[in-house]
Design a protein around this nucleic acid. Sequence first.
DNA 1: TCAAGACATCTGTGATAACAGATGTTTTCG
DNA 2: CGAAAACATCTGTTATCACAGATGTCTTGA
Lengths: 161, 161
Amino acid sequence: MRRLRRLIKQRKPFQSLQQEVFLEVLRTGHALVQDLVDLLKPYGLTQPQYNVLRILRGAGSAGLPTGEVGVRMVTSREPDVTRLLVRMERAGLVRRRRRPENRRIVTARITADGLRVLKALDQAVLDMHAGQLQHMTRRELEQLATLLERARREDTAAPTP
Amino acid sequence: MRRLRRLIKQRKPFQSLQQEVFLEVLRTGHALVQDLVDLLKPYGLTQPQYNVLRILRGAGSAGLPTGEVGVRMVTSREPDVTRLLVRMERAGLVRRRRRPENRRIVTARITADGLRVLKALDQAVLDMHAGQLQHMTRRELEQLATLLERARREDTAAPTP
DNA sequence: TCAAGACATCTGTGATAACAGATGTTTTCG
DNA sequence: CGAAAACATCTGTTATCACAGATGTCTTGA
């Protein structure tokens, strides 16, 4: 009985260690993202919009098809990306154009305005990231990144190639 | 120059180790939550609705004021909780009643139906959590939980007013 | 007492997420 | 060639998140 209690109550009142990790990941993600959202707000950007801008900057002047942008987003499925891009086009951050050689595809490109906003944010975002985890050592951060990557890897139980 | 490159490219193409951790946390959280969402879907529950049910079950027959439910939710600010509870009341999972002794307060209670749904889910959720992180050792999970908790701790480095 | 403030919730608006199904375009194949 | 399938995007609907402001209900202090 005592051993059972020790086993169960070793940590916080969670029903399982796995559940604790689950909640910790969610809570931490929420806290971290909140700082980014607060940083973006004065620029009139939401977090998904910021992601799109970074993706499109990375794609260069060739731009990317709507679907490709969707794939590169952590969140957001495809139907939403269309509307997200439309809103951003309205805001002048992005330009969309149907490709002449294949009229099914709509290519999105970042505008000069979009690039300007991103550039103004770059250093601030890096500083924010540094500040958020300032109290952790390099070794701890590397461990954390490795463990998180590992947590995700086998979700699909598929053996890595 | 070579040293700089070595410093920068030690890990993946991230601009900083902190940024990598940031993205890893978000990606992992998204992946983990997706499994829960999939599990809940056949029961007609969304993830916030499931959270509310667990919170209200924990509160017992006394129920909780709307605002208190909001505080206990990881996400969701207050105005949303009102509408969330209203929708859940419509679905018969929750009952809301204005308190006679203080008519400002609306108390929410879980219904028998809500309890039934939760009970049907309990084991499945535990199994899902176990399965998600099955490939990690107990030691790794403990490390991960500890590091995540630590990552969150000092977020507010600003002296409170 | 009673007006001002505090308190708790609610309403309105805009953006995002997820899903299902519709539309327009190109490719494939008999 | 022309219908069917595949493809890429778009539209419609519901739920959620976030913020601002409105409403209804106590509490407090002159």
